[in-house]
Design a protein around this nucleic acid. Structure first.
Length: 707
RNA sequence: GCACGCUUAGCUCAGUUGGUAGAGCGACUCGUUUACACCGAGAAGGUCGGGGGUUCAAGUCCCUCAGCGUGCACCA
């Protein structure tokens, strides 16, 4: 009988992803199987929340592909799978994107009403969220939309506030007046991780400072320098005593300098003598703290000199430097200038502006106690890292961790629930002496009332570092502490993310998870590599080589893109993605289509495979299953690809044309191949399954196993 | 300065506990026979960065050198 008469008409034409993918996704969504079902063992992945300030990029495409592969595999293995999607307000990142938008419109955030600015960014974010979500669906992500979370949802903010209060009460968060990293362009402080080191060649100025010569790369900070520091055992300066005062002529006239002896001085550098600017330099700040020295601000938050600079006051430091040198030269205070001084400057990771350290009152998290708990768990191997060397990197970072500044001077973020007492108490007439009991700081989401006086509390205008809330993502999304989801799905199974946020996010999630819940937030960390452009270069907007994954989907179909992203992509290693590679996998999707046509036309139902063909397939199945269990998706994908095309299609089907027994085995093998392929190429395999088994879903078929 | 990673076919990369090198793409030669030209058959192409060591056996383990990349620290 000519079975082809029964074939659906579309099977007679090439496979058309555009006519298929959206329809198939809808079927999955409507099926209810995107949510966890059944009472079996759970398998959980919390999706790294996607920044809602743009479009999906190739890296996101990879996240969606790898996580979906894991979820689909486990779902077919019968696990109660939860893949929880989320979107990120992405505090500073989004604010920067929005500022650029404002700039294009000829506007600026400075001077804007804060509420209006917040509302505008919120609208912008919500608009982007819709777009991003539809792109996540285009990638075929079989995540549970009924549990979707946004980092500014009320319950998220509530938990973040609770954690802050708990840590404050536990003395793990403190208000510190310390030296912090300040970006004068973005007008906010940063944590150490947002600072990028950049090597530059600049001038090193040797200046006469009374009887000494000091070397400096930053003459514009030197106005307030009144301490001259040297090593206690430097023989060259043994005649000068610690605390000795020396009168000398400086930039704007005579000053009295005080000699300080400190062991942190490198006798080999320059002349072995330096002056310090504690307000604008980390090392100088430390020296000043040790010897309880005065600290004076020289540069304001916009990068302009303060009145202490005399005639230079109000000038931007960039412009002022040559003028200051000119003046020093006129006064005969410049001994020499070295123009090839190579050193590293700290810059803002977003705009490259040189970071100006400033002393500011900010909130800090005491990291040492948190890191210790995390280190114990990681060293014991309770969290598995793939690839493993990320474990070493994490341990190294945790062992040398510094306190974390979580205050940001930006509008777009979760407000810090802290209130400061008005500077002056307003005594309640009848109990005047109670005023001494007034609390300076109260941590509370709602405005507090002072019990002891009539003064008001002023809200901390700052917002949290976005990573402070992100680091709580696993237990927040599962609605710690009382929700059934938290009890069922925490600790989660896999955290799959990019290597560049291993400290920003992964390590902090471990610390916060352990602190708040007492348990690790995930058992395995899977770090994927970066996606590079076809030439192997990092994609960036400024280089103009950013690849839009949606373009690839339009040109070749999602399944082809997914396979292109996963084959040959070992964890932690970068992958150059080229259209040629993806085109190859588009052809493969079509190959599946044609195989199906041949199988349906030639192979009867119900036959099982026997003998060598069976042994061969069983070995492949076991091999691939083992690869899936061990996160070797790049190998599993390649193996099934190779078997289907070059063994099953090229040889077994050809053989079946002459051999009836082989022919009768085709359908059984093919159906099992489709199952093995499904996690990688969900759309085309599901579409084929719908043709072969109308009304059934491949997504929830059982993964091939030993009978 | 310290640490980590990479170096395998023209290109992009695999190679899981050591067993005598693979895939995709590209280039080459054929080919339309029961699905598929978004195809098939065939052949070409590598002293696995250099050097040394362990071993019966090394792309794989150890040492060393070089190049590339990344992270961290110091930085007057």
């Amino acid at each position: 009988m000519a079975l082809s008469e029964k074939l659906p008409e579309k099977l007679l034409r090439p496979y058309d992803p555009k006519a298929t993918e959206e329809r198939i996704y809808k079927i999955w969504e409507d099926s209810g199987f995107l949510a966890p079902t059944g009472e079996s063992k759970p398998f959980t992945i919390i999706m790294p929340p996607i920044n809602a300030n743009g479009s999906l990029h190739a890296g996101h495409g990879l996240v969606m592909t790898i996580e979906d592969i894991m979820i689909r595999y486990k779902r077919m293995r019968g696990y109660k799978t939860l893949w929880l999607p989320g979107l990120d307000h992405a505090g500073f990142e989004t604010q920067v994107v929005y500022e650029k938008k404002l700039e294009k419109e000829g506007r600026t955030r400075f001077g804007m009403n804060k509420e209006i600015l917040y509302k505008e960014i919120l609208d912008f974010t919500l608009f982007n969220s819709k777009h991003i979500k539809s792109q996540i669906k285009q990638m075929g992500a079989s995540c549970d939309w009924s549990r979707e979370k946004f980092t500014l949802d009320d319950d998220v903010v509530k938990t973040v506030h609770q954690t802050f209060k708990r840590m404050y009460d536990d003395n793990l968060i403190y208000r510190g007046n310390k030296i912090i990293s300040w970006c004068s362009k973005h007008q906010t402080s940063f944590s150490d991780l947002e600072i990028k080191d950049e090597e530059r060649v600049e001038s090193l100025y040797y200046l006469k400072y009374g009887p000494f010569t000091i070397a400096t790369a930053r003459p514009e900070t030197k106005f307030g320098d009144k301490y001259v520091v040297m090593h206690p055992s430097d023989a060259r300066y043994k005649e000068y005593k610690h605390g000795q005062k020396i009168k000398l002529e400086w930039i704007n006239g005579p000053i009295a300098a005080t000699v300080i002896k400190d062991e942190s001085i490198d006798m080999e550098f320059g002349t072995g003598v330096m002056t310090i600017t504690p307000w604008h330099d980390n090392a100088d700040f430390e020296i000043a703290e040790r010897h309880k020295l005065d600290k004076e601000q020289i540069i304001d938050e916009a990068g302009k000199l303060l009145p202490i600079a005399g005639e230079f006051a109000g000038q931007h430091i960039k412009r002022a430097r040559p003028l200051i040198i000119e003046k020093l030269q006129k006064k005969g205070l410049v001994e020499k200038i070295e123009n090839d001084y190579k050193h590293v400057v700290k810059t803002c990771y977003r705009c490259g502006t040189i970071i100006e350290p400033q002393i500011k009152s900010q909130w800090f998290v005491k990291m040492k106690p948190l890191a210790e708990k995390a280190l114990k768990k990681i060293k014991k191997g309770e969290i598995k890292y793939i690839p493993e060397h990320y474990k070493k990197i994490t341990i190294h970072w945790l062992e040398n961790i510094m306190d974390w500044n979580i205050s940001r001077q930006i509008v777009w973020g979760i407000p810090i629930p802290a209130w400061f007492h008005e500077p002056r108490c307003i005594p309640k007439s009848e109990r005047e002496k109670d005023v001494e009991k007034c609390k300076e700081i109260i941590v509370s989401a709602e405005e507090p009332v002072c019990e002891f006086c009539d003064a008001k509390f002023i809200r901390d205008p700052d917002t949290f570092d976005t990573w402070f809330s992100s680091s709580q993502w696993p237990y927040i999304t599962l609605q710690y502490p009382d929700n059934k989801d938290f009890k069922t799905f925490y600790p989660t199974d896999v955290m799959e993310t990019a290597g560049d946020i291993i400290f920003f996010w992964v390590a902090r999630m471990i610390m916060m998870g352990l602190y708040v819940t007492g348990e690790i937030p995930f058992k395995t960390v899977y770090i994927h590599g970066m996606i590079l452009d076809p030439k192997g270069e990092k994609m960036s907007k400024s280089k103009g080589n950013v690849i839009d994954p949606i373009k690839y989907i339009n040109d070749f179909g999602t399944d082809a893109l997914r396979l292109g992203l996963v084959v040959g992509n070992t964890p932690g290693t970068s992958l150059a993605l080229s259209p040629e590679k993806i085109r190859g996998y588009k052809n493969f999707a079509n190959k599946l289509w044609n195989i199906t046509r041949f199988v349906l036309e030639n192979s009867p139902d119900g036959e099982k495979v026997k003998g060598e063909l069976k042994d061969e397939f069983d070995k492949l199945r076991d091999d691939i299953t083992s690869d899936m269990e061990n996160f070797r998706f790049y190998l599993a994908a390649e193996k099934i690809y190779h078997y289907v095309w070059h063994r099953f299609a090229d040889e077994i089907i050809e053989e079946s044309k002459k051999n009836a027994e082989v022919k009768s085995s085709l359908k059984y093998i093919w159906e099992n191949c489709l199952k093995l392929l499904h996690p990688f190429m969900p759309f085309v395999t599901e579409e084929i399954w719908q043709i072969m088994h109308p009304g059934k879903l491949l997504m929830v078929e059982t993964w091939p196993h030993d009978n």
